[in-house]
Design a protein around this nucleic acid. Structure first.
Lengths: 214, 214
DNA sequence: TTGTTGAGTGAGTAATCACTCATTTTTTGG
DNA sequence: CCAAAAAATGAGTGATTACTCACTCAACAA
């Protein structure tokens, strides 16, 4: 995963990339500016020309994730997959999203890990995360949800937020289970498990009680 | 949330409680042993009589969560609620679990935050987490799942792991959304939203396509 | 009383931290 | 080609870190 913001010098990119690598490995507090500098191939002083404080590096990573990735991950990606790729029915739409998002998460995992960790501890980071990514994602999904409800493919009684969260939630835990706890579990076949996850998202884990609408 | 393991001196308990508080506030690396000592009301040297290194304090917290809380949180609680409290039908069973677990998560959130954060970065912590808590939770839920499938209340096609994960996933994101991002969102009515979450878990977010079994 | 023990202490230690700044190197404009 | 400006450097700074250890002192036994 490369950083590639527009107004950014070569050195700044190198520093940010190195920072993402080091911080994602050891956590923000345990990552030292000296190691980031070494990893980036610059002097320690150079870091502080581009980022006034260490915390500003973190903000830089957040902004980067917000600006570049969110655009790719949320707006462009979701819209394209949900609306324009010939997935008319809900199931293949969701399956497309999940598979695509799964690969995405893999690619941006270092950055995500940093942001998620820091968001758990600092309200200001949470606020940026919400403004830059979550609110936009909710917006896009709400549009999709409205459309699906109109088509009679999704339940109107369940709000967009809850529905979207259900998809995200299952996706995240699926990822965590496989990628973080994978080594200590004998894993099921990937596609089979993903199909079950989609079933759970779409139709739930309970037996359908009856067929007449309540 | 008090620590209360059996073989533990008064001082050790105080240190562990203080450590949970401080580490949960600032994260493991940013938490200093000097502050933990101050918070516990002991000398800094005393800490190292009970815990050889700072990382041993973390292990102490993990063990504490594993031994004392996991029993309460997962095994005892789940079994009681799922099997013995007159919730014969699936819906009220799940609702009971969710509400109960929600309050629990609130209570042990400081400890959970520490463990989750460190588990994201360290395989050894993840291994302990899996052995002490996750594997046990999976075991208990699998038993419940089998019973529910036999009764015709839960789908047999969806594995216990996927089903359990779906419940946990929705629960976790519901909690995160409300407790971490709550301040920056105008929140829906709690019970109404919880009902929707349960609906999503039980019957999914898609419209049921047809009524004949495939 | 005297001697022994061990929990508890807190000043001390070397290492490391984020950050600064005087200096050097590179780039730029005429 | 040169001087001015900008960028990059890395030794240096005070603060802080996890951890040590010589010590205190209350409790108990002889």
């Amino acid at each position: 995963m490369q950083t590639a913001d527009l107004k950014m010098s070569e050195k700044e990119k190198k520093i940010l990339d190195a920072a993402i690598g080091v911080i994602s490995e050891k956590g923000f507090s345990a990552a030292s500016t000296s190691e980031i500098a070494r990893q980036a191939g610059v002097a320690e002083g150079t870091i502080f020309r581009y980022f006034k404080t260490k915390k500003d590096i973190l903000r830089g990573i957040l902004m980067h994730l917000g600006n570049v990735i969110a655009e790719l991950l949320v707006v462009y990606g979701l819209k394209k997959i949900l609306f324009h790729e010939g997935h008319e029915d809900l199931r293949s739409g969701i399956k497309g999203v999940l598979k695509d998002r799964m690969a995405m998460i893999d690619a941006v995992f270092p950055m995500l890990r940093i942001v998620i960790t820091e968001a758990m501890y600092h309200e200001d980071i949470r606020q940026i995360l919400y403004d830059k990514i979550i609110s936009r994602a909710v917006e896009v999904f709400a549009e999709y949800h409205r459309e699906m409800v109109d088509k009679g493919l999704m339940k109107g009684e369940i709000d967009a937020v809850v529905a979207g969260r259900s998809i995200l939630a299952n996706l995240v835990l699926f990822f965590v289970y496989r990628n973080l706890f994978g080594p200590m579990i004998e894993l099921d076949d990937y596609d089979r498990e993903l199909d079950q996850v989609i079933d759970a998202i779409m139709h739930g884990i309970a037996m359908p009680e009856n067929c007449d609408k309540k």
